[in-house]
Design a protein around this nucleic acid. Structure first.
Lengths: 252, 252
DNA sequence: CGACATGTTGAACCTCATCAACCGACGTGG
DNA sequence: CCACGTCGGTTGATGAGGTTCAACATGTCG
């Protein structure tokens, strides 16, 4: 455990895949024990400090990776500086684009981040070799597409209040999912906000002022309570879900 | 040719893949002549009138398909009826979600549509059998993800004027791409608007009134000209691109 | 301690949504 | 044949939700 931690600092040593904490949730969970050996030899552990750009849309990215810890934001920017976060990725999420060195966006460490990275060509070779791995990555991409479209609904049609509530709800659900298996039935949740207000604003298509105001409003409505700006408590998930105005199949 | 057309009406006869006009651009372009034979036997041609729901997020979709002609909108709706179009698909685009019967959105014919459809299980079997086909579908999904994220930037950060201009620019580029190969250098473009103002509004996260006003504004600014509400002419693509405020790699 | 980053709150302004009237095209039934 | 309703689209008046600008609070780190 302690030996593992020190490895992270050297930036070149290889972590043992079989002790990896996110493996079963990540794409590499598709591989058998023996197949993991291949991964092991190609994997390279990286530590990235908060704020650092990991991939740019200018220079081709020669690597892909899997997030071990921390949060990474994918951003797109207009000429005049207006910015939009188009994806937030956490531990076990896949980072980068297979089959294409051109990235359409920036990837930036939103917090300190640990990544298990691979040369893109190495990883693509693995994909060819292990169809289960490619299939898992494919499924992963399909899920990301669904999430992106869910977010399009939020960006295009939700009010500021609903946007903020939806984001907090997402985090709350994620945290209660990690806690125990039966996620649906949880009444309350606690979590630590992984990003700044600025990033929240860029994710929700708002300004920081509006985000701040809406959070205060949710506090005064007793939907959430906060300690120290980053620790959130949701006493009643259904109340938050209500405010988030979650989309709902309409029966015609 | 005439025999082919009559086939469309019967709804059960099989179109010959080797005469298909969209094949080379669609995912089935990955298959060889012989492999196309498999497709041929499984394909089923469908005609869908404008307005009809093709897939719902309620009942599992048991088929997937490739669009031969027309436009299909993918929509998501909030409980109170607010709607957002999360994808617009045209000829040669793939429709449906492999590996998952649950659809996260509605698919609705925006115009009269012709689809070449397959039972989902049939198609998934083909994917297993022909890795090239699966790979092409994967690439296709990656492109859709990129497009969705591009649209997130539009929805979250662009002004009404920029939104409308961006949408028209997209159509203009699509049309000039079909015309000739060298798409980059074209100065002007003409196209027919494939959807109503209402759909435009739902795609851009605006109201029909705002869309209408922005179009009139683009007209009076001489960026576009219109005949009969649906026929658009863009005299100078670069001017439209300018107004669309296309995102631009920022150099830091 | 002062400097700087992060977050909150207030006031004024502006873009876009809302409500409403209107137009032309089309189809339908008396 | 025309009155009628409907649908897609335009235009105007008004107002609300969110942005912008500005001041202030809080926390952290040298």
């Amino acid at each position: 455990m302690d030996r593992l931690r020190t490895n992270f600092h050297t930036n070149t040593t290889i972590e043992r895949c079989d002790t990896c904490t996110v493996r079963h949730r990540a794409v590499c969970g598709a591989l058998s024990k023996e197949e993991l050996g291949y991964l092991n030899r190609l994997a390279r552990h990286k530590k990235v400090p908060a704020g650092q750009v990991i991939m740019s849309d200018e220079e081709p990215a020669d690597f892909v990776g899997i997030i071990n810890s921390g949060a990474i934001k994918l951003t797109k920017t207009l000429a005049d500086g207006r910015q939009q976060i188009v994806g937030l990725q956490f531990a076990s999420d896949f980072l980068g684009r297979a089959y294409n060195s051109r990235n359409a966006y920036f990837a930036e460490a939103a917090t300190d981040v640990e990544i298990c990275s691979f040369l893109r060509e190495d990883f693509e070779a693995l994909l060819k070799q292990f169809p289960d791995l490619e299939n898992r990555l494919f499924q992963n991409t399909l899920n990301e597409l669904d999430a992106a479209r869910e977010w399009m609904l939020l960006l295009g049609r939700k009010t500021a209040q609903e946007k903020v509530a939806s984001f907090l709800l997402m985090l709350a659900q994620k945290s209660s999912l990690l806690g125990c298996g039966h996620s649906e039935t949880v009444k309350f949740a606690t979590f630590t906000l992984p990003i700044t207000r600025t990033d929240m604003a860029d994710y929700l298509g708002l300004t920081i002022e509006t985000v701040s105001r809406q959070i205060t409003r949710l506090k005064s409505r007793k939907i959430i309570s906060i300690t120290g700006n980053r620790e959130f408590l949701v006493p009643d998930m259904s109340a938050l879900t209500e405010v988030a105005g979650q989309d709902q199949p309409l029966d015609d």
